[in-house]
Design a protein around this nucleic acid. Sequence first.
DNA 1: AACAGTCCCAACCGCGAATTG
DNA 2: TCAATTCGCGGTTGGGACTGT
Length: 260
Amino acid sequence: MGRSPCCVGEANLKKGPWTTEEDGKLTEYIEKHGEGRWSHLPKHAGLNRCGKSCRLRWINYLRPNIIRGKFTEEEEKLIIQLHSVVGNKWSTIAARLPGRTDNEIKNYWNTHVRKKLLSMGIDPVTHRPTTNLSSLATVPNPLLAANLGKALQLTRLKLLHRLLQLFSNSGRSPAPTMDASNLIASLDPQMVDQINVASPSVTTFMDHSSTPSLISCSPANSPAEPPLKPGPMMSPPVEPCCGINLGDLDCDLSWKDILE
DNA sequence: AACAGTCCCAACCGCGAATTG
DNA sequence: TCAATTCGCGGTTGGGACTGT
């Protein structure tokens, strides 16, 4: 059903950063009465704030046992691993990182991990090697950007070559993937000529207009804790396409494999 | 020192789910 | 059963801190 915006009609409610006095009032009230009934809390605690704002302040900042400061390597690894399973379910991820809040993890992801993965050529959404040049272009490192040109051309070529090998091995005509035609279009024409010598069917990609999605593999390892429900970012069970099990195909196409 | 650009994070917003009456 | 209310979540933003020129 949803609801109207929080605290609509409540005039003059304070917004913005909390003062130490407000923090004190909120902490004192919750220590006395416990969490919950957030909509009534501000009135009873003597705060001129929206209940929602109080809840957020408590959960993300005032609650005891909150760990503040830099994330450890172990935490970062765990976040990446969990994200690959559940996607942007920050609260689910936070539940497995004691002392960390969903907001903190979300911020950390958006400011650090995302960029780190992109700079490694990994799509932070799918956790797969990215072939999307626009996402690579967002990598802030100018050195990386400067070196991208030739390296990317080579990488695209290898990726295409590998795809073609897989398709030809299957005995089927190549069904273009989401980015295959874009890859071709972005290639240096001379390079396309070169791969045409080795794999004349490359340019047949260009004639296709349909664009099936690339497939993600299920994560190889999941936490030992109760099984996590994959989030919406995870691909549905892999369906055979053109008689090929694309799941297997995609698993075979690891980034390392492509580059080597 | 001054300014511009970028980074980072606390807090806000709006939505759907869950609960209540 | 259903509308109203409350809660919790994920996306987004504002502005202070930091860095480079």
